[in-house]
Design a protein around this nucleic acid. Structure first.
Lengths: 217, 217, 217, 217
DNA sequence: TATGAATGAGTATTCATTCAT
DNA sequence: TATGAATGAATACTCATTCAT
């Protein structure tokens, strides 16, 4: 799917000979990201964005083909950045548990540095933009794949119990999103990652309780 | 908050003397829920709903004061039902782990029976309806509170390790939503609950790895 | 025009064999009149009226063909009553000044007794009801005609100066409406009529000033 | 439509440079005023106005926040203009009768020049726009105050009889409105003012009749 | 590149009127 | 007579997008 999908960036202005300079475009992206993080897609108007950037509405259309594309381009840019960070990390040959902990740390760090956009991503506005269910879906699956790989590696290494990686990846995906979005804390990304990793790795049961009591249930 | 907030249901038609027959209202709710589960709030028009139910648009307004209220009433009805189911369960004197497993089972069961509406709830359309951030927030906090209580009970009983219940409740909340929404499986609610509970309770680390290896990280 | 116009009352239910009893109809008229006096034609809904009378909305349509007819019937009933009172008075052989004063007294008396409906008449909602400009126009002209007759009589008698009766009738019509609608006073209808008549008959100029000074202007 | 057929107006503007800033707004005001003078507030739709101006509906909203605001802006503009004309006149040190006559002349002159808008003002659509009773009320009171001042001045000068200025101002207010609205005549504003002033100042009674006969009543 | 006036399809909501019971 | 659920045409307002300058 990642191969057939044409990236929003590539699509935009595919018909134009000129590629506009990036400065103004970045300005627009930043302003729009800020607004989209505060209000929903439909509640942010092109007027809002134009006013925030301090340009005329028409100017936005010199850089983006549509509101939808602007929105998706913001998301794509962010997805690409975090995903490439994560993939660079997972390319290393660390043992799976360490790898997972590092990944969590990078996610939370990226989150703290990009609160605005992440707030958008955390929302599930998939359906907001009619034709683009596949877009969010694509990135979700990619992330889940990444978790699955780490989990499989761990199982092979013997550091993880043999469980169904599909479900577990889904679990990690969901809990990370929840923590990112709702956990109010002054802690550093690393220490949040540490806490979360501890729960994921050891579970909630008290040691010893596991075998003896759980059996009775 | 739950006490001062006037429920959408109570508000609706507070001015009418007569309560219209429930059948037509249920029809509308069902059709609307179906549509809201497929498209976003803004992409579902009152015309869509009317057409789906097979009535004139005005008819909907005999039963609901506004589109927003229709939407919220669907959500409230569902929230109330599942929450009351869960609270009835947690009132029992089961040990915490069993309690948690049962709760998970009930959630997944309810989910399988109410796919449409749950798909709406799973989305975070909080911002879509400007004034109603508090609405979703209210129910999210209530669910998290429920998890926290079970976790505290378990810690006191000694069945759960002593961790921060706030973060852990958030983690469970997020992973459950993710599984509910994305896990495609033919399994029964109970067996999904079993699997999820197993991950939550034991974690992903292989037994024995925990102490020896984790220390090296 | 007065001859060709078919009265609203006559039109209503001309096609029915049964004439419903007047009681329920009167109830509706009273309630509607009250509401129309408080809000404008368009701001009063058939629901409002039905609720106020305490019947179902459909019931109103058993007595009136349309909202418009209900409105016009209220006005017609009132117009007819006051106009017949005035015409009975003008049929008497009083001298013109006394006749005028009596007419003013009757108008203000009727007004004080029918505040609600008069408030509607005082408003000029002529244009509110598309096709019925002629309706208000008809009654306005009838009233003006009545004033003109009195004025002509006075001029013939020598009690009034010879002026253009058309303009003067218009003047009296306008000032009476203004006093009716805006004069807040605890006085009796007769004493208001007395005051108004005094202004109409003597004017505002101080005696003596008239000839000497007015000439200089 | 605008694409295939070029209207006369568009052609006219084509060779000019820009349409002046306030021009479009004035166009809308003029068209709307015309329509509001023919039909009531509720019977004039934004579509009507847009069609009359020859622009899209949205264009109106570039210049006015709402239909209500458009309506009120028309009224306010007119009120302000005539009222400032009148107040400039009354600031002069003419004797009261002359002042009154001049004021009447200015009103009728303004009326003849602004038939459309004045027809709106003459109507009492106070209640049509719920929140804006106070608006019309404000301007009515201001006009009445103006009359009262002139009347008081006249009484002090000795040119007017000592009467109640409140009632008399109300009388003048009403009769002027009536003449403005209903008097069909080819006469000039000055000559209408002259006639009306004559009635106001001298009254209708024949000289000499006043004392002798009126007493008998 | 940039502008911003203009567009017009799209939508929630209202309410007089009807009609089966 | 009476009901009241159902109707659907009507309407103010929005906002992404276009285009002449």
């Amino acid at each position: 799917m990642a191969k057939t999908r044409k990236s929003i960036k590539e699509q935009a202005h595919a018909h134009r000979g000129q590629i506009p300079k990036g400065a103004r475009k970045e300005e627009i992206i930043r302003a729009a990201a800020k607004l989209f993080s505060q209000k929903s897609y439909h509640d942010v108007t092109m007027d809002d964005i134009a006013e925030k950037v301090g340009v005329a509405k028409g100017t936005i259309y010199l850089y983006f083909d549509s509101k939808e594309n602007l929105y998706l381009e913001i998301m794509e840019e962010t997805y690409e950045e975090i995903e490439s960070i994560l993939e660079r990390e997972t390319a290393k040959s660390d043992p799976a548990p360490l790898k997972l902990k590092k990944v969590l740390g990078l996610i939370f760090k990226f989150y703290l540095q990009n609160l605005d956009v992440l707030r958008i991503l955390s929302r599930d506005e998939t359906h907001l933009i009619r034709e683009h269910y596949e877009f969010t879906e694509h990135w979700r699956l990619r992330r889940i794949k990444l978790y699955e790989k780490i989990l499989e590696k761990g199982i092979n290494e013997g550091s993880f119990r043999p469980f169904k990686t599909e479900l577990t990846a889904l679990i990690i995906f969901g809990l990370v999103r929840s923590v990112m979005f709702y956990y109010k804390s002054e802690k550093s990304a690393e220490s949040i990652a540490e806490e979360v990793f501890s729960m994921i790795s050891e579970g909630i049961l008290a040691p010893g309780y596991e075998k003896a009591e759980a059996a009775r249930m």
